[in-house]
């Protein structure tokens, strides 16, 4: 609870029931942010994240909803803002899905699902977040991209396209709103030990200069920095957290 102090707003972390999102939610709560723990299907996981945050002395609430549903962003913001009575001043677009397939075999559905959740949902959530952030002259948006946006990984052309789109979206929005005191940055995690990478071939690990997988906590630490007051001059940046994979 090093930096814990009363915050003027709340933090929304999408896809926070497990993995990287859960670690980010815990880290922001430890800094004093009341956190909305969004989940789509893993209710038990989300409730466990909230329970742990509360037992550590933080504040958090579960926020169900599939971010790919166009109606959900407004619902999440209204629910979180009414729960804590403050605007959402931190948004972490973390929710993501993968539907891997080699491009010749990739279906329209696999393409659309991945673009909808990883890219379009982040746009809608960002659009909604900027309303209150612009009025507050303050805000932090962190988009969780991926190293595959920077370095090809066969079988993930849809995921790579969505994450590369997310990086370009990040840079453009960052420039648009910079003078409102809002920063918008992207993280590009490499191989992180989560459910999402459990089924991926371990061969890829041999290409990681650090020769090991990263942890969700190592990604969360970077989000924690980008959200902090100290990072106020960092915007439009892409921070790789990949053990050197993209270097």
């Amino acid at each position: 609870m090093a930096e814990a102090s009363a915050k003027p707003g709340a933090a929304l972390v999408t896809g926070a029931s497990r993995g990287i999102g859960a670690a980010i939610a815990r880290a922001l709560a430890a800094d004093g942010w009341p956190v909305g723990v969004n989940y789509r299907s893993d209710k038990d996981g989300a409730e466990a994240v909230v329970a742990q945050i509360e037992s550590d002395g933080g504040r958090a609430t579960v926020l169900p909803g599939d971010v790919a549903d166009p109606a959900v962003p407004d619902q999440l913001f209204e629910s979180l803002e009414s729960t804590y009575g403050v605007p959402v001043l931190v948004l972490v677009n973390n929710a993501g899905v993968a539907a891997d397939n080699l491009s010749p075999s990739l279906t329209d559905e696999e393409w659309a699902t991945v673009i909808d959740t990883n890219l379009t949902a982040a746009f809608r959530l960002t659009r909604r977040a900027l309303k209150s952030m612009m009025r507050a002259r303050s805000g932090r948006i962190v988009n969780i991209a991926s190293v595959v946006a920077l370095r090809a990984n066969p079988g993930q052309s849809n995921y790579a396209a969505a994450k590369a789109g997310l990086i370009s979206f990040t840079k453009t929005v960052a420039v648009e709103v910079a003078r409102r005191g809002i920063t918008v940055n992207a993280l590009a995690p490499g191989w992180i030990d989560t459910d999402m990478t459990a089924d991926v071939s371990k061969d890829l690990l041999a290409a990681v200069p650090a020769r090991r997988a990263g942890t969700p906590e190592e990604v969360a630490a970077c989000v924690r920095f980008l959200v902090s007051d100290q990072a106020g001059y960092v915007t439009g940046a892409v921070l790789t957290v990949d053990g050197g994979l993209a270097a």
Partner: peptide, 10 residues
């Protein structure tokens, strides 16, 4: 234009 967007929100 960004100022006008904010004015529209207000």
């Amino acid at each position: 234009s960004l100022d006008l967007v904010e004015l529209a929100q207000i």
